[in-house]
Design a binder for these strands. Sequence first.
DNA 1: TTGAAAGCGCTAACAA
DNA 2: TTGTTAGCGCTTTCAA
Lengths: 327, 327
Amino acid sequence: MANIQDVAKKAGVSVATVSRVLNNHSSVTEKTRIKVEKVISELSYEPSMLGRNLRTSESKLLLVLLPSVSNPYYTEIINGIEETAIRNGYNILLCETDSNPERESRYFSLVKNRMADGIISMDPAVNKERLFELAKTYPIVQCSEYDKGADIPFVTINSELAAYHAVKHLIKLGHKKIALLTSDEQFLYARERRLGYERALREFDIEVNKQRIYYAGNIGFENGQQGMRSLLELDDRPTAVFAVSDILAIGALKEINSNGLRVPNDIAIVGFDKISFSNMTYPTLTTIAQPMYRMGSMSATMLINKIQGKHVESIVMDHELVIREST
Amino acid sequence: MANIQDVAKKAGVSVATVSRVLNNHSSVTEKTRIKVEKVISELSYEPSMLGRNLRTSESKLLLVLLPSVSNPYYTEIINGIEETAIRNGYNILLCETDSNPERESRYFSLVKNRMADGIISMDPAVNKERLFELAKTYPIVQCSEYDKGADIPFVTINSELAAYHAVKHLIKLGHKKIALLTSDEQFLYARERRLGYERALREFDIEVNKQRIYYAGNIGFENGQQGMRSLLELDDRPTAVFAVSDILAIGALKEINSNGLRVPNDIAIVGFDKISFSNMTYPTLTTIAQPMYRMGSMSATMLINKIQGKHVESIVMDHELVIREST
DNA sequence: TTGAAAGCGCTAACAA
DNA sequence: TTGTTAGCGCTTTCAA
């Protein structure tokens, strides 16, 4: 495999000139450029990023940290990140933590070892302490999940307000017995969405009934089923459910169907996230849409700016209630 | 940030010795090793992979090429690849082609530029010609999709046999009017699954009725809906459908539900892939399970062996019919 | 067991 | 506009 020396020799120029051609420096004459390009093509020369990276002390790789690629919530965000990364000459290293601290720590090493130039963290279960520590030395931004007061720029939506909108929509439809299907409150988004839920109820003088709040231990489909099962067993059954994620909502939907009840006639459902599958259920799911693609794209832009030493501000994006068949 | 020189100086040894400590060479005395490790920890030294990579001419990155991360078919395979990669000191570069040749070519450059040590290709729409050409110079393996006669090792299942099993299952349930919901036959898997479908029918003396075969232009959920719609319009409506992917099957399921028909009473459905959602539908989907995780894991092992210059053989893995509520 | 030194392939400062 | 040269951080050969 040819290297820059071979090209220089064969073209009768110095390696510096070849490098200039490779990097489109304006100082090279047309004639020299043509000559060098001809040799490059003759030798099928491909510049080694390994050499360039060592020299420039960068890897042009962005590390994207997420709990699991199988969670459809992340797919559009990833698309946004990747598109923007590529447009700026970066590639992404998609890293699944599986909420496993050992894996997380291995991925953190990647940036310490210069294999990645920065991190976009989307893992709600990330070890905050270590993330904050790392952020002192390396460029990091958070996407979706974030931490108030931490000195890490983030991109997110207003979860409290979005939940408020979702629940208000159910109230406007005449529902009073509205259940909340949420997840462990160690996650900020769960706390905020509960607050939005409670605010909407209070605003319409509906009592917040603790029995109607189900805290799922995990965020899987089965947890949605299980939560719905226990809500259905209540003496005073709810007529509507607000789930803090589509996956939970889809679990609830299946449980309702399995009990011979109809959605939305017997029970209405609102989900959260607008994952692609929320459109494939029967009935389709009313849900809160986050501007996933733009969130990803914005995180990438922010991270790249941060890598380049620019100052970066956090940003809160808009959400949208998408009304479909389940309400 | 400290480098290997700083460590050497402070420890009073040469950089060679520090390097030996880093790479666990046995020739270092316990005493020296302790001394060096102490300094490493004092300086919070982290070795730069950039320097190491240039020196060893490898990136320790595997490029994984797939059409889209949002296709749940790939998620378990990716898990298998990643786990195996990490265990062998590699990381993966997940690359979405979106079936876009320009993107594909940019990813191919990554391996030409030494940014990746090899490729696992899972994209059925990959440009065969260029892939074969690339495979002459760089380590490549194919997963799921493969090419007969090409000199590229692959991991796959026997699609023809799996389809045969799926259709035979429907026949055993008493179905005679069995439709096939398939995709464009430019893909090998579609051709093979049709052959399996036809073989099962012929074996039980059921005529292959061209009208009952729907070729979807694309592999999305909507294509499944649309295909089912046109199958429902047939004068002699099928009583069962075999879809070559779960996503198509889920589209079909929704269309059937929307027409007030019941699954499996009015129409039975078998899918293919056992994606996680196939368990979340109402009713749950009978489907063909591929050993996704093992396929991913095996591809990674094969690729790493290939990178290390070992000889690698292709492998055909087992599948399994998973009978659930839709039949 | 350890050290000196070369060199992986490239970029960029400086000189011409 | 082009060339010379140092050096990015590491591994490895050879010699001691």
